[in-house]
Design a binder for these strands. Structure first.
Lengths: 328, 328
DNA sequence: AGCATTGCCGCAAACGTTTGTTGTGTAAAA
DNA sequence: TTTTACACAACAAACGTTTGCGGCAATGCT
């Protein structure tokens, strides 16, 4: 079965193609009577415009690219979910690519985006990506790029991030307000700007508000490593643990469950998280919320601004709130 | 900056557009000397074919649609991840849509797919979807549809599912092999074919292998409901709990953690899962693996078969294996 | 030399739209 | 009545490809 086109409708009605096209877009040049006839037939024939033709003609194809390290990740998922929602509302579609946190794949994906002549790109940097040339090239082609979560440190790019500084500060304050003295803080890869900001804010807050704090900062690169470190360091009886991410939290919690510690009596725990993981435990883990969903919405509006000609480079940080579980 | 086209290359080289086109596809009609010149210039100018033009001309646009209830779900994510990988390899791109488990949104998404003239569709039914007309219409348009996970009960559609029967049977056997007598089994929405199959297989296995089993079957529709039920029923000291999904498992585990039960001594737990959630706990929960990733690969090859003209209706069930944690 | 063959390349149509321009016919203004 | 205006609709070019067909020169064959 071949699909119906403007031409087909035109032939049936004995009108010209352009008349059909205009009628369907409610152009004032076409009389109401004709319009009605056309619209009726179009509906009856289930006319659907051919997007390829439209995009070819308009030199614009309403597709956004989105590059994430992995799609199997609650934070990025909710980010994607938000962008997808907005895209649909605004008549865009989405091309989702995974980098696997590899720079090579990331570059490959960017190329794919170029080939597909995307309208704009949302991208989250791979850990090792240091060279932003491919992105600059996109900008030259007038394709806006919005970085999210893991963003370039330098360069004037559009960025939306979770409020790293704020989030870490909130978490630290929550710990201090409970009068904890012996704090274990787990962070991720120390090369990431996201980590650097969180460490800095966390440290500063601890130092500012009290002198008698014993703070130990750790960098781990996986859930398993977090678990192993926790296995050792829990022997030293810290009274509070901070986890900068879900991945780390799950490792630490495994160690906690292993030792059958009684949260929050034996130990307080707080994390920075999207919210899903902390709520799996009992008591639920108190966390500072960094919503991928909100971030997605922010990123999208930033994208829209770019497309509307805003050349202003934005650097937005989503705000975070403390969500109380029973772990403090 | 405007992108380079065949025409531009043709003008620079004083050749015709068709020659350029053929040269770039290594057509035998073009001499090696000319080919080389053309390829060189094309590279220098970073020529990228315009996909819209190609698809318009070829009446095919290499895009698969994929409809899932939610993208923020480990199982569907890994399914999507697999399909995405394969798509990329095979030069397709992917349009990912969320139904939110609502029939309305599902239908809306199907329409969107039609508009975008997708090459094929992967779809997971919403819980309440009973009418498959929209899908039939796609088939009439020669657009293959591969259902996965939640599939239509009736009708001759292509389906790939996790091996529901096998998975439930394996889980039941695992329980029986540990000589458990007092079993609590949690299942999801009882209208879903996926649930029906699992219940049937689980029951049958229990009945076949022993008469003295006390089996209680529950249907819950959310993690919270599972938790509440568990709160009550754990008072009756079952010696084994079965959870048909991650969502249920998380609810049950919260109750278990709340009561500070000692797994597996106080209670054995087993689940059907993709594997991520069970590994969060200590001890890790024993589960029957239903890999979204594998399912995705299966679905994709099924799709490819359809596109290659296979009119044979396939109904594939992925096999499952028991993954031992420490919860039995 | 005459003829067919072959190698190489260009012409032009088609895919389905959008949109600037042009061409009607009719009604209002002069 | 002639002019002016306007409402309505058709024409045609363009977006960037692909591909059947036809053309022309050089080569091979009798």
């Amino acid at each position: 079965m071949t699909s119906t086109t403007l031409k087909k409708i035109a032939e049936v009605l004995g009108l010209s193609i352009s008349t059909i096209s205009r009628a369907l877009k409610n152009h004032p040049d076409i009389s109401d009577k004709t319009k009605q006839k056309i619209v009726e037939l179009a509906n009856a024939l289930e006319y659907e415009p051919n997007v390829n033709a439209i995009h070819l003609r308009n030199k614009s194809n309403n597709v956004f690219g989105i590059i994430v390290p992995s799609i199997s990740n609650y934070f990025y998922d909710s980010f994607i979910a938000a962008v997808e929602e907005e895209s649909r509302k605004n008549n865009y579609s989405l091309m989702i690519l995974q980098s696997g946190d590899k720079t090579d794949a990331e570059i490959q994906n960017i190329k794919l985006c170029r080939q597909n002549r995307i309208t704009g790109l949302f991208s989250c940097l791979s850990t090792d990506t240091k060279n932003y040339e491919a992105y600059s090239k996109l900008k030259e082609l007038n394709i806006p790029v919005i970085f999210f979560d893991k963003v370039p440190e330098e360069g004037n790019f559009n960025k939306v991030t979770v409020g790293d500084t704020l989030a870490a500060t909130l978490a630290a304050k929550a710990i201090l307000s409970k009068n904890k003295k012996n704090i274990l803080a787990f962070f991720g890869n120390e090369n990431l700007s996201i980590t650097k900001k969180r460490v800095a804010a966390f440290k500063q807050t601890c130092n500012e508000n009290s002198e008698e704090i014993k703070l130990k900062i750790l960098h781990v690169s996986s859930s398993l490593e977090a678990e192993n470190m926790a296995d050792k360091l829990l022997l030293k009886k810290p009274d509070a643990i901070f986890c900068m991410s879900d991945e780390i939290l799950t490792g630490v919690m495994k160690s906690v469950l292993k030792k059958r510690l009684n949260i929050p009596y034996d130990l307080s725990i707080i994390a920075i998280s999207n919210g899903y993981i902390p709520k799996l435990y009992y008591p639920e883990i108190t966390y500072v919320e960094t919503s991928g969903y909100k971030l997605g919405k922010l990123a999208f509006s930033s994208m829209l601004a770019c497309l509307n000609g805003s050349t202003f480079i934005q650097e937005i940080a989503a705000d975070s709130i403390l969500v109380e579980g029973g772990s403090m």
